[in-house]
Structures are given as C-alpha cells and as structure tokens.
Design a protein around this nucleic acid. Structure first.
Lengths: 224, 224
DNA sequence: ATCGCTGGATACTTTTACTATCCAATCATT
DNA sequence: AATGATTGGATAGTAAAAGTATCCAGCGAT
C-alpha cells in the first residue's frame, strides 16, 4: 500500500500522515526505493488508533508518542510498558508539597489507595492528579473526604475488574495488549463520561418534574 | 477589592483577568470612576470556577462562556439553563447520518436510552457524542453492543442518583445550582476518570503478579 | 504635584496540530 | 525512451486557542 492509498483508506490527508511519520507516531514504511515505501495493514491500524486517541481521547500528540515509544522499546518489560502507557494518559500535574491543602489532599489519596489495598506505584503521577482534583474541589467550596470518594473508587474498581481488564489479552503480543489497554482506558473512559452526563440530564429532568420531550420537539438550544 | 488584589488572591495574572473580562467569563466590577472598579467575593469565586474548568476540566473558554451566559440570562428557565450547561460540556461532534456505521451506533444509543427509561432530550448532542465513541470503538476492532455498554450506564446512573444529584440545590438560587452541577460533572467526572486509571493499574499489577513496590522504590519512568 | 495604579484598547506571543510547497528520484505508461 | 504522476524528505507556513505585553490617559493617595 502506498501513502496515497493509506490516506484514502484512513481518511487522513497525506501531509498529516507525513507529519505523524516525522513525529514518530507512525513507523516508517518498508522502503523499496529512494522514493517509494510500502505501508501495510498495521499502519492503517496504527493510524486509526492515533486518530481515536486524538479526536475521542483528546490526547496530545506528545502523549501518544510516549505510549508508542514504550510499545516499541523491547527493553522495557511488559508491566513497565503498561505503566508507561498508563502514565502517558495522565494529565501532567506538578505537586506543591509546600502547600497545606495539597499535602492534605495527597495524604487523603494515599490513605484511600492503601485502605482499598490497591497495588499502585507509590510514585505514580496519577496520585498527584487525583490530589490536584481534590484540592480544586476544596477551593471551590466542596471539600471532599475519603468517604465521599470511596463510592466512586469502588464503582471504578468494579467496572475495571469485571469489564475492562477482561478485554486485555495479557498473554498475547505486547503491542496488542497495550493497544487494548489504551483503547479501554480512553474510549470506555469517554463512553462512561458521556453516560454520566446522560444520566445526569435524565435525573435532573426527573427531579424538576419536567415533561419529557416528544421525538419531534425542536431543540431548545443551539450551538454558538 | 481592586484588580491587583483579585489577581493576588486568585493567583491569576492581571492581563489574564482582563482577558476573561473581555471574553465575558468574568462580570465587570462595580465601576466607581473612569479608572477604578471594585471587585467582590463573587468575582474571586467565579475566577476559581473558571480556572477549575480550564485546568482540571480542560474545557475551552468558549464552552465556559456558554455556561455563564446561560446562568446570567434570566429569560431562560431553570431546566433549560441546566440543559445549556450540560450541552456546553459536551465535545462538539457532527453527525454523519449517511454513514452506515454511524446510523447503527446512533440507533444503539437511542435504543439503550429508551430501554433504560432515561429522560434525555431526543436532540441532545450527548447522544451523538456517545454514538461517535461507539463508531470509533468499532473501527478499532472492538465492536460494542448495548449489552457491553449497559453495565457502564447502570454504574453511571447509580453514581449520579446516589451522589452527584443529591449535592445540587435545586431549590436554591440558579447560579449556585448550575455552578454545583458543573462542578459535579466536571470535577467528579475527573476524579472518577483518575480513579478508573488507578484501579486499572492496580488490576494489571495483580494479574501480572508483580510484587508491589515499596514506598521508597524509585520510579521506573520519567516524564519527557 | 506627582507617582503609581487602573481600565480600556490593541498588538504580540506561544503552543499545538496540522498544511502547503518544493524538489529530485522513480515508477508506470505510452 | 519519453513523459507525467507519485513519492519521500525537507522546509516553511497556517489556524486556533489562550494567554501576555504594551501603551495611554485618568484618577487618587501621599
């Protein structure tokens, strides 16, 4: 498959494909001559993954590159590769250990993780990310305790254990495993997020006792 | 409070505050003379909300403006105001009704919402957002059925009904209600997202049977 | 009186994710 | 063999989003 065909099948413009090649998101094709390279199904697959992470997951290109680099670095062990992928999905947050609120939030997070018996690396950036959220909630006048967070943690754990993790082929090839992990995290994460908003609309409709709309009612809002 | 104090207390630079004023995110202060205006606690509060939505929720400024405009437009009824806020939080997605996969996904979404008995407006953009995610999952080789999605929907509904919605003061002033709604959606949404990733790391550690790390183990990865 | 801060307007910057253009090499087709 | 489209590689340009910086005249406190 040549680049024009790759572009046609994926719907991604050629200059964009070249950009991904430059950025190391997409591996080079099989160079058959100075001005020709052959791309295969794996490239198409990779391209679709990139677009999904960009458009649905809204991940920055740099994060995608990290995930891909981890997959392709054969030095890294399986577990660390998954870890790298994991942490690339986190929004970078720099800790403020000298801030009282921050330290308190971080302790809350650490205590909860240990109370739940979760096996999370002590230096995982995800801990800081959650701490940051807790601090922000407090600043907004909605202080959060472990008690408040626990139901969310339990629900998350249940979903992961019963659904997401069962989809990941831990015994298969590493690229397939990470890819599945990333897809599960990002896309099912997105799906859950939207479902939460749908449920929220439904509940606020119910509580306000608004008559549900008929199928042909006009929308009452417009995009700007 | 003058602008410099507002800046000092919020940690937001003065030019940025001026930018938010220009963009209509922050209401003008009480103009006491041609070159002086007075800002109050509500401005500080609003500023914190803006930063939370920007930094934690990663919402675009335009979406924040929409939410704020809905709050301040006294014409709009309570329920429609919440709706506007809701839909401003959605990632805009344009539907492709001529695409087979897309139509199928959209039907799946509509059927599920109706099977669940949820009261969601038939033209809610959130439906398209979920359909888009379903299409993407299919393109990535992980086709999703209603059966796959239902556990996530149920979990989302339970969390919203038992926790989020109880925090919203429906009988209080409208600005407080929307603000709480938005905070719940964005920040608890974020918290859940991080918790999901933590649970996922924990489970993959458990399944791969890796010995958990001691507190003083060095991190095995670094940010780029 | 004057010195620094303010509001308001305008212009500039940075980052991110692309697009566009150019060029010589080369492949397929005539 | 001529030719015309396509390719890889390099470089440069663009668009949008979210700030930042600068300038200016007016006020207010010292």
């Amino acid at each position: 498959m040549r680049i024009s065909q790759l572009s046609a099948e994926s719907g991604v413009p050629i200059p964009t494909i070249k950009y991904y090649l430059r950025e190391g998101l997409l591996p080079q094709g099989d160079q058959t001559s100075a001005t020709r390279a052959e791309y295969g199904r794996s490239h198409l697959r990779r391209l679709r993954l990139i677009r999904a992470l960009l458009e649905v997951g809204r991940l920055p290109v740099a994060a995608i590159r990290q995930v891909i680099a981890a997959v392709e670095d054969e030095q890294i062990g399986f577990h660390d590769m998954l870890g790298t992928a994991h942490y690339a999905l986190a929004t970078p947050v720099e800790p403020h250990p000298d801030d009282e609120d921050w330290r308190e939030a971080r302790e809350l997070v650490d205590r909860m993780i240990s109370d739940l018996g979760w096996g999370v690396h002590p230096a995982a950036p995800t801990r800081d990310e959650l701490a940051q959220t807790v601090v922000t909630l407090k600043r907004l006048g909605m202080p959060t305790s472990q008690e408040d967070l626990l139901p969310y943690a339990t629900a998350a754990h249940d979903l992961v254990r019963e659904l997401d993790i069962t989809k990941i082929p831990f015994d298969g090839p590493r690229d397939v495993a990470v890819e599945t992990l990333v897809i599960c995290e990002v896309l099912y994460g997105k799906a859950f997020d939207v479902l939460r908003r749908l449920a929220q609309e439904s509940e606020s409709t119910r509580i306000l006792d608004v008559t549900p709309c008929a199928d042909d009612d006009p929308p009452r809002w417009t995009r700007p």
